[in-house]
Amino acid sequence: MEIPFAILTALTLVSALAAMSLRNLVHCALCLALTLAGLAALYLQLGAQFAGFAQILVYVGAVAILVVFAILLTNRGDQAAATRAPARSWVTGAGIAVAVFAVLARVILTSSLATGHPMVDRGSPTVKDLGMQLMTQYVLPLEVIGLLLTAATLGAVIIALPEKKTPAAAAPNH
């Protein structure tokens, strides 16, 4: 139990750090896919099978590919912008992140909830169990999620449509 957890967390953390710090955007996207796959493995290790496979399908399959496409569509051929040095405010940003982690870690380590609980044996809920819950107790959230996904799909398509050519829409020179 200890060694798989250590391997998975190390892999996920290193690839997350790489995704946030590498210069080449495509490398960042590939490291993001590795991070998401590591998280899916952690879900599987915790016994959440359907969530793990949904994570692989949705994140590693769809979102990572979407990010790669966005990077390729917005690539001007020169990497000058991508390799531009981080802004001067990066110390501030990193400091805020460290402070947030310190607060979270302090709360976690002093909480009575977080320690002393053994793993609960919940079996492994099957897809059938989840489907029964989704179709009975959670049918309203499920419908709302369906509506949201439809609206998001339509909205994404409409937003990404090419702009109409009007004289006022000339791109400013940056």
Binding site: F5, T9, T12, L13, A16, L17, A19, M20, S21, L25, L42, L46, V67, A70, I71, T74, A81, A82, R84, P86, A87, S89, W90, T92, G93, A94, I96, A97, V98, V100, F101, L104, A105, I108, L109, S111, L113, A114, T115, G116, H117
Partner: peptide
């Protein structure tokens, strides 16, 4: 234990927050 997972998740959150605050590319 539970706090191992919570600490790891807090660390991942901090890494994502640091990236979102410091990187200059919208993607």
């Amino acid at each position: 234990q539970l706090h191992h997972y919570l600490l790891f998740s807090a660390l991942l959150f901090a890494v994502g927050l640091a990236g979102a605050l410091t990187r200059r590319n919208a993607i």
